[in-house]
Amino acid sequence: MNLDMSSDTAALIRSSKRRLLQMHYEAGVGHIGGNLSALDSLLCLHHAVMTDNDLFVLSKGHAAGALYVTLWSIGKLTDEDLTSFHQDRTRLAGHPAPKAIEGIPVATGSLGHGLPLASGMAMAKKFRHEPGRVFCLTSDGEWQEGSNWEALIFARHHKLYNLTILIDRNRLQGFGTTDEVASLGDLRPQLSSFGVTVEEVDGHSWRALSDALSCTDPGPRVIILDTVKGKGIPSFENKLDSHYLPLSDLEYSRAMQELGS
């Protein structure tokens, strides 16, 4: 048990994980690993950090399931909505679709789009002197996309103080580890060299997440989340398979047992 969180928080995380697994299992959909690595930060953001003035962009659109479950956990989606995930006529596509769901301002799925979009939103708030922040969650492999670096330069140059970039560093991507596929080297100094504030936190520690995400120091700020792909499901943790494969019957029942009720 993670000692840095209340029992309510632990229950929230557990029920959200269970709902996420159920949704993916019933739909026969993979991408579970990257959803589980991102879920804690999404829950923390939406339950403990964001206000009505804030905006969130999920750049790693393949973690749509985690975002849908998070929106379900705050009452913006229903159980019936989640049941429709990946089904015909659903609003809940495998990657967030345009204008489908309140609380998801932009569709994503092709990597490298979310951060420039979020930068535009942050700039809009800055122009109007509006309160609120813009959060954008990227994956780590996604930083192989040049558009992210374009956006980082832009955000820094235009002093988008209200922009917070989260990087879900689970170190695995579609066809290998990020180090094997196209190494990003030591990400922190590289990002810092662009003139943005960078910190690294445990992406599964509610307290560390809450502290880092609640910080309102002027940005743009980058928070590298050290995470585990497939977090919480031992057979999936740090496994490349968890990027794509859906849960088998046995894996699902074991995982639910491990999570507890």
């Binding site: 420039p116 979009l117 809009a124």
Partner: peptide
Amino acid sequence: AGIAEQNMVSVAAGLATQDF
């Protein structure tokens, strides 16, 4: 927006979502 057209267009889209 600099020599970064991909970013420029997405930034424009982000601004447009906020009614600019």
